[in-house]
Amino acid sequence: MAEVKELVKELVDKYGRERKNLLPVLQGIHLETNYLSKEAMLEVAKQMDLSAAEIYGTASFYSFLDTKADGKYKIRVCKSITCEMAGKSEIIRTLEDMLKVKVGETTEGKRFSLLETNCLGLCDQGPAMLINEEFYTQLTPAKVRKILGEYIRNKY
């Protein structure tokens, strides 16, 4: 686990060892490794002199800090009322059909995780979804098939 150790050290050096820098450090790890592994959290505990339980408690509070290894691509479909009114359910159905998983699950080989999320702040352009850092708005089943098709073809 030398890599994780190095990564944590780099981040702790960059942001500082004080508790107030915990979120930036955790987010830094997340960006590099796509989730917060047990080893990574223990390493943060060691280097920032915090209890591991508290780090887990903090991480598990936030929906964008995952503590289990999910898919490489995290698809977050907005489930807020306006996106629901704009046809979110159809979008979910399309994604479930294509990925052969249900909401909350990850495809075999950990390529895609299908999640629902609260308001993405795109209520005027719903239904909306986020794939990792990319936004997709005014979705229709056809549009979803096209977008996801591209991920499947190009970005595997």
Binding site: L22, Y62, S63
Partner: peptide, 25 residues
């Protein structure tokens, strides 16, 4: 810029501050 990590409640100002201090919001 301080990046949030996904929690509606952090819009409440004291939760926001807790979050900035590296804690649960």
């Amino acid at each position: 810029i301080f990046m949030g990590a996904g929690a509606y409640i952090c819009g409440e100002e004291t939760a926001l501050i807790e979050s900035m201090e590296g804690r649960r919001g």
